[in-house]
Amino acid sequence: MQSIATFLTYLSTGIDRVLRLVALVGLVLMVGFIALQVVARYGFAAPPAWTEEAARYAMVWVGLLGAAISFKTGFDPRLVKLPVTLPRPVLALAALLRGSAVVVFLGPILFYCFYGPGMNPARSFLARNLHTTAETFDMPTIFVAITVPIFIIAIFIHGLAHCANALVPTQAPAKTPAKTPAERETNAPDHA
């Protein structure tokens, strides 16, 4: 149990680091594409046609990976914050319910990333996006679609790591990246 918890924490932290880096690059690209679009319109003879679509795709990356990072940080707004003074069984039940909301919401979406009509993987969401291309440049949309399973899997791993650590309360959890005070905010405890 102990080693599983350590491993999951390690994995969750590592994934979070990578996603933060990719999302950051995505955001910078977004600004870059939009700026290029403005400059090109007034500066170039024939402005590139792909800037808008590329910026939108970068936003999908930023938005979905951002969702996983926000989950890990515990930033997502909630309506009710349970007092920690409640009896342990109540808190455990609440944690179970929070976890079930995450799994019920994202589980089917993840499933249909890999399976299509008639349980056929060849007609899954990802497979369909192998056959469609972007409108203004020659790129299969799979490079955008792939963010959907990535962000869901990341959220599931973050949730599992959190559960595992809750079950092994004596051991201090492995190091998580330092959070700025602004990030900690009001919603600091995790979801699952």
């Binding site: 009710v80 929070r98 909301a101 919603n187």
Partner: peptide, 23 residues
């Protein structure tokens, strides 16, 4: 019922809305 239970359990807005919708 699912919405209410997950909302009260302290679930984030996105997840209890999404979860209840799937149900």
């Amino acid at each position: 019922l699912f919405l209410l239970a997950t909302l009260l359990s302290g679930s984030a807005i996105a997840y209890f809305v999404g979860g209840a919708t799937i149900v």
